[in-house]
Nucleic acid binder design. Sequence first.
DNA 1: TAGATTGTTAATCGATTAACAATC
DNA 2: TAGATTGTTAATCGATTAACAATC
Lengths: 220, 220
Amino acid sequence: MNEQNSKKVSIPVLRRLPLYHYFLTDLLKNGQEYISATVVAHHFNFDPITVRKDLALTGVVGRPKIGFEIKLLLKEIEEYLGWGKLNEVVLVGCGDLGSALLGYEGFSKYGLEIIVAFDNDPVKQGTQIHGVKVLPIDKIADVCRRMRIEIAILTVTASAAQDVADLLVEAGIKGIWNFTPTALHVPENIVVQQQSMAGSLAVLINKVRSLKTENKTVTE
Amino acid sequence: MNEQNSKKVSIPVLRRLPLYHYFLTDLLKNGQEYISATVVAHHFNFDPITVRKDLALTGVVGRPKIGFEIKLLLKEIEEYLGWGKLNEVVLVGCGDLGSALLGYEGFSKYGLEIIVAFDNDPVKQGTQIHGVKVLPIDKIADVCRRMRIEIAILTVTASAAQDVADLLVEAGIKGIWNFTPTALHVPENIVVQQQSMAGSLAVLINKVRSLKTENKTVTE
DNA sequence: TAGATTGTTAATCGATTAACAATC
DNA sequence: TAGATTGTTAATCGATTAACAATC
């Protein structure tokens, strides 16, 4: 029944599904029961066909003229993205950004729970930030192995990034969400997800700029 | 000479160029003068052809067997991405995430300067966070128009997002970097860049998972 | 019934990867 | 000179968009 897990999934789809989920949750809260792909598409300014194909991946069958059952859709999106079983992760580096992520309420909605944080500042060690306990860095291997943690969020300084990544790999981590600008070198069977602030910004600046030249060309 | 600005630029390239820039800056600091696309590719685990094509966009000509002049490459990447003229932006919403971004040192390196922040909390108004002055929300239109601000970073709560976006559009903003999970509705000539934390996380979780099933299939 | 919406197969578009001659 | 690396044209791959019959 859940055969689609074995098929390769496209990255753009993985990015869109959480957006749908957030939107549908809101609709359900307001008492709505059904939604058409057309309406979802319009809300996000996506192509309707794209949305229909995305929703088809979840296996939920829609009814012509009526649309998809929201409740079912939410359940299957969660299943598809693996939010069913809470993903327990750790965070390393409790600076400004790390602290902000510890308090980011979106995560719990998205099947993610930060169960412990690490920092090398003795002042922070033993305290709690947004309800998450902070431990010394040298406890990483012990904690991660014992709790079978697979994913770590990396928010240390750029210069410490590679060293900490090495520790995480050593501790059995399988995926690192890298918020530092440092390119990490890890073994082949470890996944690094680069969260490049500068990259996103570059895209935005470019779009705004081409918007302006566009207006110059199209004169009407 | 700078004819490439009129051509459409691919988004993946825009995301990779800042990564190269960061790496090359480091090399230059260490006294290196030339770099080959092959070495850059190896550092980021990219295909060498991809890097060569990306670098070709800047217009810098490499020398076979030697590579590209780093100094020149940095200059042209900055030119290409529009980092020459500092991009002055504002930030709205000084919660945990907003405050963290106000202190994010990476931005200044990337041609971006947050010149003022806004928040509706009277306690924060008039103070400075990481050296950036915090003003009341109702000053947005005034400040943005006077300083000809084009880009805003949105880090308010999900429920306030659309209202603040309306204010920003009214104030003449052309691009919004949206860190909230709310889908913004704006006029056609306004660009919204969605920073979806949940999306990135979904991608990472999926990769880690397919890694495991892969290992199960390939038995050796 | 009529018409909007679904599900699916085909066509387009764009990015990545491959191939190879040119060059220092 | 020999060989690594560049620059460029062609082939592959995958995602988005288009077309259309099926259906409630």
